[in-house]
Amino acid sequence: MKNSNALPDFRTSPVVDHVGIEERVARFTTRSIKKASKVQALKLALNMIDLTTLEGKDTPGKVAQMCYKALHLCDQLPGLPTVAAVCVYPTHVRQAKAALSGSPIKVASVATAFPSGNTTREIKLSDTRFAVSEGADEVDMVISRGEFLQGNYAFVHDEIAAVKEACGSARLKVILETGELSTLDNVRRASDIAIHAGADFIKTSTGKIQPAATMPVTLVMLQAIKDHYYKTGKMVGMKPAGGISTAKLAVQYLVMLHETLGDAWMTNQWFRFGASSLANDLLMQVAKEARGPYQGKDYFSND
């Protein structure tokens, strides 16, 4: 504490009790969200989606179609919001940006040698700068999990800080890849490191590793955000990504967010779902609330 610029000892991050976390999560999932509350949640969830395509086989054609979907979730249903952002590889940022110009939809780009992050800092930084120069509003980086698991917390911290600097005015989402971190205590430490290094968002997963986002992991990260807010008054965003494909689960995440961080976080400024197939399940539920019967999957477009 003598030198306030010294890096905190992240080994002293608050401890997490696994059983307690799972019990708390179970309580969130028993909330019964019906009627008007449900419609409100479904629309909010739609508005929080980072519509994502991150595949080796991505092409300009695929990206164009996804951007159209982002703008027109379901034109037959009036009063729908758009998604929050589309999330693509850096090479598709320029095209996505052009397709979405004039809309509130942001373009997020993964960077730093996504998804493994196993490369040099130079390459990671140039990857980031390229994404930003192509017009990315947001950058989704991956942490160096190998360094983290070796206990090399300063390395992980400094790397995030360097990427943050390279982002300029773009918002930085830091992917912890919790499926590789093994324990909730590690998830908490990695969250604290990312937040301290300047993350605007912390994000669970790349979607390439199982398990991807889970409610217990997300709760631990929300608690890290809460503790940071208590200490500093500064808000940090949260993005669970991967594995959230049903409306029911998305609403349960919103209940968890709502009862952990409260009203201020209930916007896409501070919360996102990284998902590719969630939107249509939400739309099916919205259509059901509006029209009565459930409609089949083929009534909703896949892009």
Partner: peptide, 16 residues
């Protein structure tokens, strides 16, 4: 001046 959280202002659960 300590930052405070607010709950259940914008989204409430209708009776179930």
């Amino acid at each position: 001046a300590v930052p405070s959280l607010s709950f259940f202002k914008d989204w409430t659960y209708v009776p179930a």
